[in-house]
Simulated assay, not measured.
Amino acid sequence: MPFGLTGRALARMQTALIVAPAFILFGYNQAGLGGLLTEDDWVKTFPEIDTVHSKGAEKSQKSTIQGLVVAVFVIGALFGSLSCSWSGNAFGRRNVIFFAAICTLIGEILEASSFGVAQFIVGRIIIGAGVGQLSSIVPVWLSETSGAKNRGQTVVVSRRAPVTWRPPIAIAIFFSLVLMASIYMFPESPRWLVMKGRVEEARPLVAMLRGHAVDSLEVSSEIAGIEYSLEETSHSAVKLTDMLKMGEDKLAYRFGLCILLQFYQQMSGSNLISVYATILFQNNLHLGSELARVLSGGALTWKFLASFIAFFTIDRFGRRALFIISGAGMACCMVSLAITTSFPRRTEAP
């Protein structure tokens, strides 16, 4: 029994030590690079992606390489997330989370110690692979260890030296270590244990997670429900080709909806702001380097804090309402950003 906790208290500890670090790693490693792209020692260390001291065709070429360096993180995340469709069932949820944390740790060390673009790209890919696995397997593990009632709630310095960019990248190492140190303190997914025929191991875990006695009716009912669900799934296993057909379960519709939601999330401009906010403030609005970073940090801090709104509203108002409200809000923000950054720079009369 981890920390001597059961029920809701254990669920809160899971969120604090596993879920929060996992998704902080995603956001931090994805967006944290944006504030460093114009930093003096950064462009000195990586002249191949220096868009500050270049112009014309040279700047265009370096911008392309810079975009590649930023984007390889997502490529690594793609392959990492896809691998979980096999590894999650083969090795268990906790083992995959631990391995993903190791990947992020190795990648962060490579990034923070980089003296060349090639090493930095390798680090970005490895971090992406780890983060992709975390983004896929942590919600599965959490949903399988959470009660149905709260499932939606739970699944949701200025110096010219290396110290200006290496420590900020290395900060993420802390969250990787938290994951590695904490994951085996928590129970494995009861569903995975039942799937592997280890029902007697799953029973006390369900009791602990729900805060009931091992021989209680609630625990027996949940175990029976898991067994029934797995039995139904084994008799009607879904193939990839079945997901492209409608049928009674409308699998094509559901599959397309998942793809479109992820696509629109990425294309809404949120990642653009997260990664390039500093450059927008500095180059488009012609703000000072330090002020641009302060404003960028403020924007990302607000983005982090705003994510907790869904925690308190998702089970009350439902997923669809939150999608509509957040989508409309994002559209207004992007319209405002496009308008305000399009004004020509005002110069004072001589």
Rank of each mutant, 00 (worst) to 15 (best):
V138K: 11
V238K: 01
E111A: 05
S220K: 15
F255Q: 04
S268Q: 04
S83M: 03
I226K: 07
D41Q: 10
L105K: 01
S83Q: 01
S60V: 12
I18Q: 02
F304G: 04
F3D: 05
M330C: 07
W141S: 03
I75H: 03
L205C: 03
V52G: 01
F281P: 03
L25E: 06
R191K: 15
L82A: 14
P350C: 06
S158I: 05
S113G: 06
I325M: 08
M208P: 00
L25M: 11
A224L: 13
G211R: 04
L33A: 12
A306G: 12
I18K: 01
L209P: 04
P168M: 08
F91I: 06
I49P: 06
G35C: 10
G27N: 07
G80K: 01
M13K: 15
R124P: 07
Y253K: 14
F73K: 09
A321C: 05
N95C: 05
S296M: 13
A237G: 00
F23C: 03
I125L: 14
S216N: 00
V52C: 01
A31I: 03
N271D: 12
A118E: 12
A57M: 07
L240G: 03
T164N: 08
L260T: 10
G76Y: 01
F46W: 03
W42M: 09
R8N: 08
V74R: 07
T341A: 06
D41Y: 15
L285W: 02
V214A: 09
L134E: 12
F99Q: 11
A148T: 14
F73C: 06
R293G: 15
E232Y: 04
E248G: 13
A112M: 13
Y184L: 09
A349H: 11
Q266I: 13
R151V: 15
W302E: 05
I183Y: 09
L193V: 00
N284A: 11
L244K: 14
M243D: 02
S220Y: 01
G27V: 07
L5I: 01
P162W: 04
P47I: 00
R124K: 13
M13S: 11
G56W: 06
N271S: 02
I49D: 05
R191L: 09
F23H: 06
S234E: 12
Q262L: 11
E231D: 13
V238I: 15
S135T: 13
A207W: 00
F3Q: 04
I127P: 07
I18D: 02
D249G: 09
R320N: 12
R210T: 04
T301R: 00
N89Y: 08
G327W: 02
N29H: 06
W141G: 02
L217V: 15
A349I: 11
L244W: 12
Y264C: 15
R159Y: 10
K62L: 09
I171N: 05
V157E: 05
K250C: 00
